[in-house]
Design a protein around this nucleic acid. Sequence first.
DNA 1: AGTCGCAAGATCGCATACAATTTGAACTCG
DNA 2: CGAGTTCAAATTGTATGCGATCTTGCGACT
Lengths: 237, 237
Amino acid sequence: MNISETITFSDTGPEDRSSTIREALRNAIIDRRLAPGTKLSEAEVGALFDVSRTVARAALQMLTFEGLVKTERNRGAFVSHPSPDEARQVFASRRLIEPGIVAGALERITPSDIAHFRRQLEEEARHMNERGPAARRAEIKASGDFHLLLASVCGNAILQKFMDELVARSSLVIALYGRSGISSCGHAEHSAILDALENGDGKRASTLMIHHIDHIEADLDLQLKQGSGLKDALSLS
Amino acid sequence: MNISETITFSDTGPEDRSSTIREALRNAIIDRRLAPGTKLSEAEVGALFDVSRTVARAALQMLTFEGLVKTERNRGAFVSHPSPDEARQVFASRRLIEPGIVAGALERITPSDIAHFRRQLEEEARHMNERGPAARRAEIKASGDFHLLLASVCGNAILQKFMDELVARSSLVIALYGRSGISSCGHAEHSAILDALENGDGKRASTLMIHHIDHIEADLDLQLKQGSGLKDALSLS
DNA sequence: AGTCGCAAGATCGCATACAATTTGAACTCG
DNA sequence: CGAGTTCAAATTGTATGCGATCTTGCGACT
């Protein structure tokens, strides 16, 4: 496993090591370097990051709270394998929250923010034009970052935290249920939303956002093919 | 301190003890038996519930994730003391989410649910007619339970979790900034919302809900009297 | 041959021990 | 008498050890 990327703790400063591990695992999960269903043993995680089980456990507990990891008592922690129903709930939540985020962002967005968005969208476009699984992972991540940036502009830390969780879960869902062929449809819509925001047209931006979310969800294949948990093992190994 | 209420672990079964402690602390916080700013030392919490620091720490970590507790590295955990700005963010989030919850609940609510709501509202009314701080605490809690019940009916576990957090934070905010005199205005509005739901009038229910939230927030005194964190110490000790 | 039971191995839950950091106070010096 | 410094008490951060629980492989019994 090469989960730990090129992480040397010194980079992030002496701050919470468990948070650093959480972020690394989080990135690995939403990048799909860690497949849903993968077991994350405390000892293994601890060994990978060269810490004790205590801090590894703390990181896993945080991820469990975010819904990216599922822990079963006396059995361990596993990368979440959201059911189609959970997937629908994720998108229902986003449909509810994101229009409000757009409205909030509209009132506080600055030219400097817009420039930031433009750079972000360029990045996104670059990944879109590349091929290969690495590029696709980067694309999913970049697409999520657009929504997170929007949430940060809106200035509500609570909503931002909610969006953090929703975007992360979405990445999992897309990786699991996405029909890979048509997945790169989001970029133009991001641009359009940003344009509407720049023109101060909040109504249009909200509408575009809802359609955008609809499109993402429509691109999924959410037929319920799984009963309980035996499929986990089936799909992962 | 009598935080632990009448808790004997055997009640909740052999499940996670840290979760049990989390709930007990959570209740104590939203009931205002634990004042904002109060220090929650790991050792003290552990002693109160007769567990080691390890599990106490886990409970505190969960509460930190919910925003009910703030931990500072190497300094400890404290009951959150939300700023007026945070308070506004809480209510902004609720204004965004709860209408959607109402809409979701409308489609799934059953007569049995409605009966449940009625019983809940009676309970609420009982506390409203009593006097004293204990009754007021119970009233705040019961009022929150109405919203949580609504969220549970809506059938979206993610939104339900969000509402859990928002309602808990609201209780803190109300306890901190509520003008105590007029606080008991919510009951009639809850009834009205339920009536609208029963009649299938989702539009009206949503509108009532927004007004309800507006009223709650309007009843607060959110003048920003505090600069940073020195006031915490000032108000707690 | 199939099934049940049992024991060994692995992993987690929790407690405890030790290290690191902060805080507050006593103490010294100007 | 006040300011600065040093040290000790308290508290958190982290590691590790032990018991409990679950899994799994092997063997005996039907």
